[in-house]
């Protein structure tokens, strides 16, 4: 495992911790999109089917279990926790996320490595992850005041994607690891979605003002 891959995994893990911390410490999920969180839960559940069949490393297994359980816990909190669920910005979180699920499913049925349940599920999870942040970005744009932790959550998620691309470039040259075109294209699309956010995050950091995305 190279340093970029590890940095990517750690920023991903960090984003989850920041989100859990925000919900736990403030007992609030305002500014967080339940739709994005549900999509991530679906992404992890469909991608990590190999937990049942393959063992790659203890590191991989633990990280997969962490991502599955944390995403389910966040969804549970936002839907069912007696205090937290009342802070959910339901009226602003209106992205039709099932269109993303349907689109990803169609793509996965058309473009996959092999026509097996596992491979189609894997491709589906890659496509869905690429666009799963969209409801969250739309919600951020609608929220007049983005609190620091929510901004940091999205920042770390974006950093994770950027590190993964560096990881693929590194592996391409050092291992002749031809990470197939499916994750390459989906990964580039996904990282591109954050470009705008990064720009405004940088401005707010530089000028030391609260993050606000233009409508």
């Amino acid at each position: 495992m190279n340093v970029f891959r590890f940095a990517g995994d750690m920023t991903h893990l960090f984003s989850v911790l920041v989100l859990l911390l925000k919900i736990y410490a403030t007992k609030s999920c305002s500014g967080i999109s339940l739709k994005t969180q549900e999509l991530y839960a679906l992404v992890f559940l469909t991608r990590y089917l190999d937990l049942l069949t393959d063992f790659i490393s203890l590191y991989n297994t633990v990280m997969k279990l962490v991502f599955i359980s944390s995403s389910l816990a966040i969804v549970w909190c936002m839907r069912a926790h007696p205090v937290v669920r009342r802070t959910y910005d339901k009226d602003q979180d209106t992205f039709r996320h099932y269109t993303l699920v349907a689109g990803s499913l169609v793509l996965a049925l058309l473009f996959h490595d092999r026509f097996t349940i596992r491979e189609v599920c894997w491709a589906f999870s890659i496509y869905l992850e690429a666009v799963a942040i969209l409801p969250q970005l739309v919600l951020l744009q609608r929220s007049r005041n983005v609190d620091n932790l929510t901004g940091q959550y999205v920042f770390f998620l974006g950093a994770y994607r950027a590190f993964y691309i560096l990881n693929w470039i590194y592996r391409y040259f050092t291992e002749q690891h031809f990470s197939r075109w499916i994750p390459w294209i989906a990964g580039l699309v996904q990282t591109g979605l954050y470009a705008d956010f990064f720009y405004y995050y940088y401005l707010s950091w530089k000028n030391n003002v609260k993050l606000q995305l233009p409508a």
Partner: peptide, 10 residues
């Protein structure tokens, strides 16, 4: 049929 690459990333 090409040997399938192991999916070792998260």
């Amino acid at each position: 049929d090409v040997e399938q690459e192991q999916k070792d990333e998260l």
